Simulated scan of single mutants.
Amino acid sequence: MANFWTSRTAIITGVVITLLGALYIYESDTPISFTMPKSSSSADNGVPGLEMKLFQLSRDPPSLRVTLKNTNPDTPYTILKWGTPLDSAALNTGVFSITDDNSGNEVEQVVLMINRKMPPPKEELITVAPGTEEAIEVVFDKPWMPEAKPAKYRVKAEGEVKGAWGKYGDDVTEEELNAYLDSPFSGKSFATGDIIMEVH
Rank of each mutant, 00 (worst) to 15 (best):
residue 172 V to D: 13
residue 156 K to S: 13
residue 59 R to I: 04
residue 173 T to Q: 06
residue 87 D to N: 02
residue 135 A to H: 13
residue 134 E to C: 08
residue 47 V to D: 04
residue 62 P to Y: 00
residue 127 T to F: 01
residue 79 I to N: 03
residue 153 Y to N: 01
residue 57 L to D: 11
residue 33 S to Q: 13
residue 156 K to I: 01
residue 101 D to E: 14
residue 169 G to T: 06
residue 112 L to H: 03
residue 88 S to G: 09
residue 62 P to M: 04
residue 141 D to L: 03
residue 123 E to G: 01
residue 100 D to V: 05
residue 164 A to N: 04
residue 166 G to T: 12
residue 145 M to A: 09
residue 95 V to I: 11
residue 109 Q to M: 11
residue 79 I to A: 00
residue 88 S to N: 07
residue 84 T to P: 04
residue 78 T to Y: 06
residue 113 M to F: 03
residue 145 M to Y: 09
residue 145 M to R: 08
residue 144 W to E: 10
residue 118 M to D: 11
residue 47 V to N: 06
residue 173 T to V: 07
residue 85 P to W: 05
residue 55 F to G: 08
residue 82 W to R: 12
residue 118 M to L: 15
residue 123 E to T: 12
residue 84 T to W: 05
residue 44 D to M: 10
residue 51 E to S: 13
residue 170 D to W: 14
residue 140 F to K: 01
residue 118 M to V: 12
residue 68 L to Q: 02
residue 121 P to F: 07
residue 89 A to T: 07
residue 37 P to N: 10
residue 164 A to Y: 03
residue 44 D to E: 15
residue 176 E to H: 14
residue 157 A to L: 05
residue 34 F to R: 09
residue 139 V to N: 02
residue 47 V to S: 10
residue 123 E to N: 12
residue 67 T to E: 09
residue 149 K to H: 06
residue 91 L to N: 08
residue 90 A to D: 12
residue 115 N to S: 11
residue 44 D to T: 11
residue 37 P to C: 07
residue 31 P to A: 05
residue 143 P to D: 12
residue 170 D to T: 15
residue 168 Y to L: 14
residue 171 D to P: 02
residue 54 L to P: 00
residue 155 V to Q: 05
residue 161 V to P: 01
residue 119 P to Y: 04
residue 103 S to E: 08
residue 168 Y to D: 10
residue 83 G to M: 01
residue 73 P to W: 10
residue 165 W to L: 07
